[in-house]
Design a protein around this nucleic acid. Structure first.
Lengths: 107, 107
DNA sequence: GTCATATGCATAGTCTGCCTAGGTAAAGCC
DNA sequence: GGCTTTACCTAGGCAGACTATGCATATGAC
């Protein structure tokens, strides 16, 4: 088990964050960290490759803008395909997590 | 997201199964599949390398015996270190799963 | 008898995907 | 000027699950 993340869930978490509002990469990491109460800490070396992945798959669109702090930032927006993918991943995750919980509850 | 498993949880699931009773590999796979109601399907190419791993780490012991079906089978028994590891992994998984659920519940 | 199926173990090679470690750069504060 | 924070990115490595394959034995169907 890794320390910061359940492997395989990163794309889903990114899509979920973007389903609330368009965000730039750094803000996604902060959002996840905050909402998860510091449990999920997304490293930059994980985050940016993941964003390239979801971009390449057409689940998000990207656009360069200026962040509130005046720096250039790449804003990502979830697409319709991305929302569909998100739904599937959430369902799949729920199924898995429940199955694992069933195993762990056994006595 | 892979189809059959949340990556990173396999060792934990194996240790959990063995914490109930010593078992051979094939039986572990069947047990997990059954308890999870067919959701967790452990492929043999995942299972046996995983058993080697937990064996190498001292979390289980192995012993050749005869299975109820008269075939030779390698029975695994969890060790004290294995139980400790299991406890840590369960705690860690719970923390992660809860954090992810918090993210997914956001609106 | 033999053929299929289920049981049981194992490895080689591949691929995905996260991590470590590095680099760039601008804004704000002291 | 130097430090911290914000913001992006890539190269290289490594862990771990998957596919594909091979071997062997017991049981039941035919």
């Amino acid at each position: 088990m890794r320390d910061e993340l359940l492997p395989g869930t990163l794309d889903m978490l990114i899509l979920k964050a973007l389903s609330l509002a368009p965000m730039h990469g750094y803000a996604i990491a902060q959002h996840l960290r905050q909402v998860s109460q510091e449990v999920l800490r997304i490293e930059e070396g994980s985050l940016y490759p993941a964003l390239q992945r979801v971009l390449a798959k057409g689940w998000v669109k990207a656009e360069w803008r200026e962040s509130p702090t005046k720096r250039r930032a790449r804003y990502y927006t979830i697409t319709a395909a991305g929302r569909k993918q998100l739904g599937q991943e959430v369902a799949s995750f729920g199924r898995m997590a429940q199955a694992i919980q069933r195993v762990l509850r056994q006595t």
